[in-house]
Amino acid sequence: MVMQLSAKQSLHLPRIAELIRVEKLSDREKVFEFKFDDGKELGQMPGQFVEISIFGVGEAPISVTSSPTHRGSFELAVRATGSLTNKLHTLEKGAKVGIRGPFGNGFPIQTLKGKDILFVAGGIGLFPLRSLINYVLDNRKDFGEVNTLFGCRSPQERLFIGQLQEWNTCKDMCFLETVDRCSDDSWTGNVGVITTLFPKVSFDPAKTYAIVVGPPIMYRFVIAECLKKGLAEDHIIMSLERRMKCGVGKCGHCQINGLYCCQEGPVFTYAQVKSLKEAV
């Protein structure tokens, strides 16, 4: 007990940020771009999250969807689900919020450098993964072959459509997309769950890391597919969702067995997750 603390160091104290852009992604999702009032950067790594405050409503943990290579502002893509996120969806440009963070370990950039990468995103799992995909594209020479698979339930639930279009035509990586089902002819692409894309990509399992983010049900099938393709358990990387109330390893809500998702996570390898009985 020798450290000198002051109230200004309160773990609960957020920085004020201004909402500078809102864009609708789908019926339930929007992307919000923020800039700190003090002009400073968020300084996040891909895969980290922030606690966003709306004063009078509360706080919620949200992953950062923009890449740190994008300077001057940052983006949070959010599904309206709980009280905070529903309120957030009503905010307009110019609104002020509180931001704490970035928190969590983020994706292991150093480990991934020089390696081939297979990105697998399911639904809004694209939000945290988009940060890393864009980071890799912006630092393309640091990485090997890149394959990206994205799946969502229906064409109406596709997110960041402009971005998907860019990735589709981008020569720096192979991008494949599918929807679980489509009842009309508005969609001419792949139909089927995300694992149906696996036979369509080729990668060297010895050199490849798979980065998988999606709903719990998707992990079960995608991990089985990765293992079948010969990926090592510690080459399969996932980001887990928990109720991270404080972000600083105190409140206990995000605990997965003995680990705190906000500290040791939210990014884990499958080798780690396998030994965590409560993980998925």
Binding site: M1, M3, S10, L11, G249
Partner: peptide
């Protein structure tokens, strides 16, 4: 008081 020390609790303790 360890990693990420909490002012609310630790200042009282000190």
């Amino acid at each position: 008081g360890g990693a990420n020390p909490d002012a609310n609790l630790m200042m009282k303790r000190q």
